[in-house]
Nucleic acid binder design. Structure first.
Lengths: 231, 231
DNA sequence: AGATTCAAATGATATATATCAATTAAATGT
DNA sequence: ACATTTAATTGATATATATCATTTGAATCT
């Protein structure tokens, strides 16, 4: 975890959070002045659930997984974190504890920005407050959808949903590198890793996807959508 | 669904949302002027998932269930709505659609307040914006917890969790009226109604609770907590 | 290159839980 | 008060899914 800042400033950053557009020059400067940078190797924990929450997180480069440490050492992966996306758990406005963990999947360059700055900006800049509410609302909506998927779908539907998530929201491609292990895919879909293997195999045998340990190729997206929607 | 206003005004309402404390007299007046009242009988739908979302909802009296209409006609009950709690789905800031339904459990007197007023207040009143973020964050935290419970706990743990939710958050009592049917308890815990019956019976036989169709009495709360925590 | 570790894959089995069918009990209408 | 509908309960069975044990394969270390 290096300390050297390699990003010039928020003003010139091309991967900054899009909602910073609502800030004035001096407000953006304030953000930049309260910004801390660090790099992480694959597997390293960037945010640890339960620890005191004081900073929002942005990735400048790389990918991370956002997961809840649940019961009996089991994890539940909520989402994949990409550059430019805000990571600020509900803890910021509730109990000042991180309510989930974030771990690097690839090499990650991260920016931390103090909650205090965020909270200040919410109070003085209405457009910024609104844009933060929009961001949080979108995440909340996603989490509602995930909850129902989890509750109402059987394994093939849940796995299909996650394969589509990678295709549509993470890689914007029907062919992508599977950055999660079978174990982790299970932690995202609430199934045992062996079941992940078996259902991927079934999908491959029925011609819906190609898959090996490192790659997924969606061959019949309509059918995959059907599997996801029908549960 | 009557049109007559039976609540004088937000200024004098004793059951109003606590975050209205951050509003000035004139802002509160604005809220009151954009307030619409209606009453509902048990079972009636107050908010319908998918319909255009234009109002936040508050109950003045009564109880309601907040549920997502999921796959193949199955519902997932997210929470019980009480007077004084804000109901404003993520749709308000995302796609202007209600993302869940709300139905009256008992007779309900409801107030609707236009989203536009809320959004206006967020922009002009920083303290109000912050308090809204606090409210939404608390709900988001709860939904994270529910997600993990759902994913990691077996049936007894899930059911115990809901019995504790009623005791701790809805009735503040270890003895309460069971306002949900067995079917609905199943929709809240993601289990079949028959399984609800069976596990309630097991809990009764092991002396953890007393239960009949209308009443729950928690006899051994520590044990119930243990069941909930151990999944 | 061989040894070691770790993930993926496969098969056999156990378990949790849903579904189906039937019965009882309670609520509601006439 | 009786008939009708609806919910709760119970038991038997089917199914989805996890767990366990083992093998295969790939990556990493020395």
């Amino acid at each position: 975890m290096s300390e050297r800042n390699t990003i010039e400033s928020c003003e010139t950053c091309t991967r900054r959070w899009k909602n910073f557009q609502h800030l004035s020059k001096s407000e953006l400067q304030l953000v930049n002045e309260n910004r801390y940078e660090a790099t992480f190797k694959p597997g390293e924990i960037i945010i640890k659930q339960g620890s005191p929450a004081s900073n929002a997180l942005f990735l400048a480069t790389g990918m991370a997984k956002n997961y809840i440490e649940g019961i009996k050492g089991r994890n539940f992966i909520m989402s994949i974190v990409l550059p430019g996306r805000l990571i600020m758990g509900p803890g910021a406005y509730v109990n000042s504890r991180y309510t989930y963990s974030v771990a690097a999947i690839t090499a990650v360059q991260a920016c931390f920005i103090s909650f205090d700055v965020f909270k200040h900006l919410v109070r003085v800049n209405g457009a910024f407050a609104e844009s933060l509410l929009e961001d949080i609302s979108a995440k909340s909506l996603r989490s509602h959808i995930r909850m129902v998927n989890l509750a109402h779908k059987k394994m093939p539907g849940r796995l299909a949903e996650v394969l589509l998530y990678f295709s549509d929201e993470i890689f914007q491609s029907d062919e992508y590198e599977m950055i999660l292990s079978r174990q982790e895919l299970g932690e995202m879909t609430n199934m045992a890793k062996e079941s992940v293997v078996r259902i991927l195999k079934e999908m491959e045998e029925s011609g819906v996807i190609y898959s090996d340990s490192y790659k997924i190729k969606i061959l019949d997206k309509d059918k995959l959508r059907l599997i996801s929607e029908n549960g």
